[in-house]
Amino acid sequence: MRPLRYVSSSTLDAVVAGLTAGDRLLAGGTDLLPLLKADLVHTTQLVDIKRAPLSGAIQRTPGGLRIGALATLAAIADSPLLDGPCSLLRQAARQTATVQIRNRATLGGNLLQRPRCWYYRNSRSDCWLKGGQGCPAVEGHHEHHAIFDDSPCRAAHPSDLAGCLLALDAAVVLYGLAGERSVSLHDFFRAPDSERRRETILGNDEIITAVDIPALPAGTVSIYLKAMDRKAWAFALVGMGIVLHRTGTTLDTVHIAATGLAQVPRRLAYCEQALAGTTAADVHIDAALQVLGRGASPLPGNAYKLDLARGLLERGLRSL
């Protein structure tokens, strides 16, 4: 039998000290437990952080909003503070997983969940992300995989919330042995490379304590559209988060972030540039759709994601 100790956390400093000794942190556990069972994560000690000095509160701050790392997806889906400019977060949370999972899963765990790639998760399959050679999805089934080729790993990032937070220019608050730091999501997520076969720059001694969302001008509108293979309980084939603000009829803020297209949530910068400063007339939307795939190198089985992303972007832009 594999010995596995289960302890409750005491202080944040003790938690991060344990991380360097190989502890794994248990909050909702909706990803950690499957990873443990699939032999993708090994540890001898699980530290339950639900009672740690961590917060799940969603609250206003001088600079905007702060969501504690322990906030459940259900709490995010239900929070009236997230109406208005941030409503895409509520929409995304409502479309994530199932009621049961949303009641358990936390924001911090959601941002750190590992790829859902069926080669990565299959204990009989070797792959680059697990330390092996090459990505079997490239020659195999990659219908759900990334159309951008930013990493030896072709897995697409699964988080609905991550894309939305990226569109909101949010930042994660990290705590580690060296203390606290704030990192924008743009920098936090990074496609895996040979030095770091994971999707974030989180240090080995660090934990996410909160996510900060900067204040947005009044009148900012947002939407999250998710395409999945069934009506509920599926990861996004493509998820499209859009945050817009107009002065008069002119778009002065255009933030567009997609999930399901790349190894990490991705801002669609070319589309944003095509729309910024315009009135989002048909011609401008068409121009944005034209450049959506710039830089993409889809595989034969996932080129459809470009069409899907364009469909979602057009639908979203026309509805805001």
């Binding site: 859902r116 069926w118 080669y119 299959n122 079997p136 195999g140 069934r230 509920a232």
Partner: peptide
């Protein structure tokens, strides 16, 4: 779904093999 090179079944679970939910 079966990987042609290895013969692995890629969705041998209820997360990836999609039976209808009530919403479907």
């Amino acid at each position: 779904l079966v990987d042609e090179a290895s013969g692995l079944v890629l969705n041998a679970n209820l997360e990836d093999y999609l039976v209808p939910t009530v919403a479907d």
